[in-house]
């Protein structure tokens, strides 16, 4: 994705920003899956990204699965029809959702007309923001309850009614919400490109 021609343009254009956001989701999802132990740790290998090492799965099936999802998310982002992505971690046996990693996707209001007036956000700054989110995801392990049961995950996309949904690939589903009384929510950092603004949040089941 990072082409040699003017990397700063990535953040300006919708396409570039979409790719950036999609890529972020890939690494964020991988980080969560690793940190929360959804997949065994030795499925992951270290990759240099955003100026730090990120653990990325090398399980082919999972890789393909994420790719398929992200490809569609990418399309939705381009049309602006996805408003939220949720990675839910569900107990394998009881099927109750234990954690919901919520990423709100907001379109940044473009000043109509002379958009050139606003200085483009430097790529380095965006990367720093992304890095901070990923670091925060890693650090959440310190307060999230220890999961000692086998888990699975599910990725939910909140789209607008008018979204173009590929038939029989994406299906309407339950939001896998955690009961309000048992849910704790922690807001994480956010990052923004010139087009998108991503706000991260984690909700987890806490029966305390």
């Amino acid at each position: 994705m990072p082409t040699k021609q003017a990397p700063t343009r990535q953040a300006i254009t919708l396409k570039g920003s979409t790719n950036l956001v999609t890529e972020f989701f890939k690494y964020a999802a991988n980080t969560i899956l690793f940190q929360r132990g959804v997949y065994p740790a030795d499925d992951f290998h270290m990759v240099k990204k955003y100026g730090q090492t990120v653990l990325v799965t090398q399980d082919l099936a999972l890789e393909n699965y994420l790719d398929k999802i992200l490809k569609q998310v990418n399309k939705w982002l381009l049309t602006g029809s996805v408003t939220q992505l949720v990675l839910a971690i569900i107990s394998k046996d009881s099927r109750t959702s234990l954690e919901r990693w919520v990423f709100d996707i907001n379109l940044v209001e473009q000043p109509s007309g002379e958009s050139e007036a606003a200085p483009a956000k430097p790529e380095a700054e965006i990367q720093a923001e992304i890095r901070n989110i990923l670091k925060q995801i890693v650090s959440t392990v310190t307060f999230l309850p220890v999961i000692d049961e086998p888990t699975v995950f599910n990725i939910l996309a909140y789209t607008s009614e008018s979204a173009d949904v590929p038939a029989d690939e994406w299906v309407d589903t339950d939001p896998l919400a955690i009961e309000a009384g048992k849910s704790q929510q922690v807001k994480l950092r956010s990052f923004s490109t010139d087009v998108h603004r991503i706000e991260a949040m984690v909700a987890y089941r806490y029966d305390g």
Partner: peptide, 19 residues
Amino acid sequence: VPLNRRVLSYHEPPPPSAS
């Protein structure tokens, strides 16, 4: 919150961890 919003998920479940 607009009600005309859809919650979608991919039609197949994620692959099991250690297949």
